[in-house]
Design a binder for these strands. Structure first.
Lengths: 110, 110
DNA sequence: CTGAATCCCGTGCGATACTG
DNA sequence: CAGTATCGCACGGGATTCAG
């Protein structure tokens, strides 16, 4: 009476490879909330994330086609990020994580 | 036209606090597959995880009531782990991650 | 066999500086 | 403003030992 079949392990590991990383979920959540955010806005919202961390993780997510980077040919430079079509397909899972937390974890006091 | 409401952020962060950690998902997956596993079996299945990592993460998951530790009063000691009721409620999300991977990631070659 | 504690090394990440 | 590159340290986590 197992709950998950072993044959699903490979796809599972591939999913983990994409979303593992301390900030991946946070970034995806931000973009899910705001639809599209500039680099600086992301950094502010995710403080105290560092410059390096944010750009590294954004690069990873873009490489995995979870988010799209939109570069405006302006000066000063302006870049913003939003969920890709593939990233959008991940939304139900994000919502599920929210709902699970609401159902099964206690709010912090005060 | 945002996709997720900000009010869900707190529960979302609480969920992340529980399942963030390099091996948490892997451990939950193992227990979802096998229902119940001894310490040594987990270690073998998750190789090359180290002794310290595994016991630390198991302790975390047990502290968060995601898994239950069953100690047999025997010698030599025998301990096994399985999903708690709370851990079982997380199964749909695990399945969703599997399915998402199957749908949106490419199998590795060979 | 499982688990706690110690020690110590490698590297992930923070800080900083530089480019466009 | 956004992004890359470099350097150096802290700390995560690997190896090992001891206990029950």
């Amino acid at each position: 009476m197992q709950h998950i079949c072993r044959t699903k392990e490979a796809p599972f590991l591939r999913t983990l490879a994409i979303i593992n990383g301390k900030w991946k979920f946070r970034i995806l959540y931000e973009l899910a909330c705001e639809t599209t955010l500039r680099y600086g806005e992301l950094k502010r919202n995710l403080a105290p994330i560092t410059h390096k961390m944010l750009s590294d993780q954004l690069k990873d997510l873009a490489a995995d086609d979870m988010i799209v980077r939109h570069i405006y040919p302006e000066v000063p430079p302006r870049v913003d990020y939003s969920l890709s079509p593939k990233g959008l397909t991940f939304l139900p899972i994000m919502v599920a994580l929210c709902d699970w937390g609401k159902e099964h974890t206690a709010p912090s006091k005060t």
